[in-house]
Design a protein around this nucleic acid. Sequence first.
DNA 1: GTCTGTGCAAACCCTTTGCACGATG
DNA 2: CATCGTGCAAAGGGTTTGCACAGAC
Lengths: 150, 150
Amino acid sequence: MANIKKPHTSPEERIEQMIQRLKESNHRITPQRFGILKVLANSTRHPSAETIHSAMIVHYPTMSLATVYKTLALLKQVGEVLELQFSELGNRYDGNHPQPHPHVICTDCGEILDPSLLDLKKITEKMMRETGFKIVGHRLDFYGLCPNCQ
Amino acid sequence: MANIKKPHTSPEERIEQMIQRLKESNHRITPQRFGILKVLANSTRHPSAETIHSAMIVHYPTMSLATVYKTLALLKQVGEVLELQFSELGNRYDGNHPQPHPHVICTDCGEILDPSLLDLKKITEKMMRETGFKIVGHRLDFYGLCPNCQ
DNA sequence: GTCTGTGCAAACCCTTTGCACGATG
DNA sequence: CATCGTGCAAAGGGTTTGCACAGAC
């Protein structure tokens, strides 16, 4: 059973994986895209599009938010980023673990953690049997207050 | 273990519960609010604000969307409705089972089902131990294609 | 050189808010 | 009759889109 909390892949390796996937699907590696991959691979904080943009504008002063959104949509499409939708918090992105996995979310400061792996395979099968759905993904969030905000 | 899928509470009983809660918290029962409670209690489809509004405007031609949103916010505040946030689908509301419970969501047509109860108490405790968070809620969604959309 | 990607601004969608009027308790 | 709720319209925030220019391959 793999431990997705501390993957053996380094940020560099992760960036390389994502680049490969983009090339495979005939997409160009632009400085903007490379920069976004770098931010994603080096972040454990599940950044928002805005956060990624802010981090990048220091080095790429002309970087636009639209490009961040377009790149995130592309990465989502090729399966290299996991999008966590929140209507209040705004969407957040996980580029290190694109497969569904549980999150623990602070309702006060918005911090998002990846706790250790939890296998929902059996539960997913149960759900498929019960509902007749063909289930291809899931989402498991726990909401509460992080140690700092308590 | 209770089965939250088919509660013994009828829509009428459920409406009564919600009315009690509103009265307890010193809120008035207006025709608009009563209508929204009726729609919520009679729906198993996790309606959006827009859906509730559309259902009501037939009987209350002056009904406004703003009032639907305000009432949903109020019901959420007093714990009588569960809000499911989706940035794409728009938020959806469950007035029959305000406590967190799993959902199975069709990514094609947007249908949302309540499968039978699944107890996450032990997993929640594990998460609290592991992360130091004080967890007060959760969300468990399964995504896939419903029988109709497959 | 071709074609995709970028960046700007405008458009979009859902949701929230301010405010004057209306209705509840 | 005091206060709270309603409805309109405008504002708001995050995200998406159209289009001309720039740049990757």
